[in-house]
Computed example of a mutant assay.
Amino acid sequence: MLGCASAELDVLVDAGLPFEERAGVRHFDPNDLYNLGMYSGRTTTQPELAFRMLFRFTRRPVEELLRRKSWSFRLRLECPECAGPAPWHVAEPDVARFGGGLADVTAPAAGAGRAAYAATVTTTGARTPLVSPALRALVADYLGAGHRWQMLPVAMQADFRLVHALGATSCVAASLLLADRFRGAGFEAEARRGWFCGVLGGALDLPHACVEVLDEDGVLKSIDIAKAQLAARLSADTEEFRELCLGSIHNKAIPSTASANAPLARHACGSRVPVEVRSDIRAVR
């Protein structure tokens, strides 16, 4: 992942890179390695190469992100320590509010262990930039604060105050913090969990969230703050995409019915271990 020799890895360990030793073998947290590679400045680590490839679309004209697009949407659900047959509860795609739609829905039946959810999801884009000066000022303040986007454990992202106190951020933590600040300024706002699709053939499975806020013009706006941050880090010529992320809707985002700090699925069997959710979202050609 880092493309470095053992001697360089020793230097990183001496400098504080955490690891656990098991039977004489060093085991590193994948989030730590990803973050280290992402900000190494070498340009050749796997995280840096993947980042440039995944976000290359942000440098293109945004009209492609505004048209209607259909997705083959699949979720695989697993209850790791299942206590027996019970109903499944899934946070479904919630796209109708932004002009999209659901079709061919197959919801999971009550059962044990594993289940699946499937649907055809249609998304569309719309230019609805933020109009409230107060909202735009809060967004600008956040973007100017210099928080560093990082891969973080899912449970940690919900503690958005701790994450930002450490100088870090993620799409979930950033959305929760912005929603909190918007409400503090008197606006109706909620951070929503969802999916970012159309990359790596559906294989990218990362937590994602946006902020939904009722602007002073009475229109519900979606703010994909993390994507704006990451696009700015990629290149200065991503300004059109970054502006689209600040209030407008694009067809690569699928919001769910879950808030940003809530699970995407539950199994009512009584197990205390969270359900594991894996997504596979592919464009319908």
Results as ranks from 00 to 15, higher is better:
132 S>F: 08
178 L>C: 00
118 A>Q: 09
85 P>M: 12
179 A>S: 03
128 T>Y: 06
187 F>Q: 02
151 M>S: 14
105 V>R: 11
112 A>D: 10
129 P>S: 04
168 A>Y: 15
122 T>P: 03
142 Y>M: 12
179 A>L: 02
190 E>C: 09
135 L>I: 02
77 L>C: 06
174 A>F: 03
82 C>H: 09
104 D>H: 11
87 P>L: 14
175 S>H: 01
96 A>L: 15
163 V>W: 00
139 V>S: 00
105 V>I: 15
148 R>E: 13
135 L>P: 03
77 L>N: 05
171 C>R: 08
120 T>P: 02
79 C>V: 07
163 V>Q: 02
157 Q>S: 00
161 R>N: 10
188 E>V: 14
143 L>N: 00
173 A>D: 07
99 G>K: 04
190 E>S: 11
141 D>P: 06
125 G>C: 06
113 G>D: 12
106 T>R: 11
136 R>H: 01
93 P>D: 05
94 D>N: 14
160 F>G: 01
97 R>F: 13
151 M>N: 09
120 T>R: 07
136 R>K: 12
175 S>F: 05
193 R>N: 15
121 V>E: 01
122 T>Y: 06
155 A>V: 08
90 V>E: 11
116 A>I: 01
99 G>C: 04
161 R>S: 04
92 E>G: 04
114 R>Q: 09
109 A>K: 12
99 G>L: 13
140 A>T: 08
177 L>Y: 01
104 D>L: 02
127 R>Q: 15
136 R>N: 10
132 S>I: 01
144 G>P: 08
140 A>V: 04
168 A>K: 13
87 P>S: 05
98 F>L: 07
114 R>L: 05
89 H>K: 08
